[in-house]
Design a protein around this nucleic acid. Sequence first.
DNA 1: ATAATTACCTTGTATTACAAGATATTTCAA
DNA 2: TTGAAATATCTTGTAATACAAGGTAATTAT
Lengths: 112, 112
Amino acid sequence: MESSIQDNIRAQMRKGLVEYCILSMLARKESYASEIIEELKKADMIVVEGTLYPLLIRAKNQGLLSYRWQESPQGPPRKYYFITEEGRKVLSCMDGIWTGIINSVDMIRKGE
Amino acid sequence: MESSIQDNIRAQMRKGLVEYCILSMLARKESYASEIIEELKKADMIVVEGTLYPLLIRAKNQGLLSYRWQESPQGPPRKYYFITEEGRKVLSCMDGIWTGIINSVDMIRKGE
DNA sequence: ATAATTACCTTGTATTACAAGATATTTCAA
DNA sequence: TTGAAATATCTTGTAATACAAGGTAATTAT
């Protein structure tokens, strides 16, 4: 099965933004994987489990996120992730990087 | 040697944008690899040869770019790449995707 | 000749996101 | 009390990207 060029481009462009988006979300309120996926879907930023779980583990190992267990009204307990102080510093830095990227692309698109 | 978390994030965020930027540049005027790298550098979008050459070849194989040889005032001949009609269609599509990504990130960043 | 400059290209590696599937806990109905 | 449904977490294997590092080749100047 072959994917279209456009699908491929959409996929490529999103790369690396996922971490920024997830840190952003968790900076406002703690959340668990299934809920994070639902909320990203609302903003058309589709992410699947196989992407999210390794990312959360990486961010936790870097000290950007931490988590606590909490019982669920139904099913197994939820792993609520929340942002750390270190994570907030990195997020603030990412804001600047993101703004810079938008400016760079804008310059290139419009012809410096 | 270990790179900082921030360097890593900067690198990740840029992924996939390079193709968009290069198609954009070539949509205004044809150019060759060394010049493309120089111009991207001006916009703080650093790209190296090992990234650019495979990308140009991929885009050519997809029919988005084509090229012609031209003698250089000094050194070996230059391979001038230019965008095709198909490339312009895809570029127009990428504009929309890029705008959509900016909107998505903005929604997520600001809390939908 | 040969060194310098300019240019093109390749190989191997780290990282990322995804597809697909495995595992575990709770509730509810038969 | 057994089993299905729902909700969760997590792992493995694969494809793709960007980069570091190095290789090849043509022209000009010394």
